[in-house]
Amino acid sequence: MRGFEYASPTTKEQAVSLLGSSDDDAMALAGGTDLLSLMKDDIVAPRRLVNLKDVAELRGIRLLPDGSLRIGALVTVQELLDNAIVKRGYASLIHAADGITSPQIRAMGTVGGDLCQRPRCWYYRAGFGLLAKDKDGAALVPEGDNRYHAILGNTGPAYFVNPSSLAPALIALGAKLHIFGSGGQVEMNLENFFAAPTSANEKEYRLKPNEIVTEIIVPSAGGWKNATYEVRQKESLDWPLAAASVALKMSGKTIESARVVLGHVAPVPWRSGEAQAYLAGKTISEQVAETAGTLAVARASAMSHNGYKIQLARVAVKRAIMKAAQGGQR
C-alpha cells in the first residue's frame, strides 16, 4: 500500500468536494472491505481517501410516505439483515445478504460498497487490468482459467462477473439509486447503473470519480413473492458460483409479471427478459420454474473452463422461483 491522505467529511457536499477527477486523485472509503485489499495489492493507489462513515445522512433505513424503503448507502450488511422491515417484506434481499457469510464483512461492508465493489477476476486482481490483457494486448480470460468468469454477456472485452451480492435482488425488486455529485442529485434505475466496460479506462458501473452513491430506494414489495438462490460451493465465506433473484407479482395463483436477475454470471447483474416473458401468466410449478431456468441461459455461451456455470445458473433460477413460491423462507 502506498501513502495517502485521509479526509473525513461530515456532509455529502464536503465529501464530493474532496473527491477528484480520477481514482488516482481520490477514492471514497465506505466499509473498506474491498478498497483496502485493492490498495494493498497495488491495484489502485489513490492519493486521498475520503471516509464516508462520518456522513450521517448516508446512514439509516426508513419507510418513505409512498411505502417504498430508503436504504442509506452506508447501511451495513448486518444492519440490513437485522432490519425488521427488510425481514418482513424483502426475503430476496435477506437471502442475498445472508450469503455474505463472513461476520466481519457483514459488520463493516455497506450496501453502497456492495454495489461499487470491484470484480474478483483473478487476472484483474493480479494486475493485468480490468479487461485482463497481457503485455501484448491479448485477452487472458477466454483461453485462460475462466472457471469463475462470465457465461452471459461475455463476447468481450469484459469477461469478469459482477461481484455484487445485493444488486440482483435489488434490481429484481425494482430499486433506484441516488447519486450525488457536484451537479446535485441524480436518480437512476439500479439496473442502468451497471454497464460492461468497453475500454480499459471505464468501470463496470456509472459513477464518476467525484460522485457518491447516497441511497437506494426499493419500492414496496407488497404482492410480490421474492427470493434469492445462490449456488455456493462452501457454506463458509465463498463467492456464489451463480445466483438468481426473482420477484414475482402475483394475482392469485398466477404470475402477473416477473423480474429475474442473475448474479455472478455476467459483467453486469443479468436481467433475463426471456425468463420474465415466459413466466408472465403462468402458475408456478416445478416444470414452469425449470423452463424459466432453461430460457434464462438460452443465450449463455461457455468459454474454455466455465461451461458448468450454465447449468448452475439454470438451477439457480429454477430454485429461486420455487423458493419464492414457498414464501421465500430462509
Binding site: 483473478w122 487476472y123 493480479a126 493485468f128 497481457d134 487472458l140 483461453e143 485462460g144 482459467d145
Partner: peptide, 8 residues
C-alpha cells in the same frame, strides 16, 4: 495460469 505462469 498456463500463459502467464502465475498462481491465480
Amino acid at each position: 495460469d498456463a500463459k502467464t505462469g502465475k498462481m491465480l
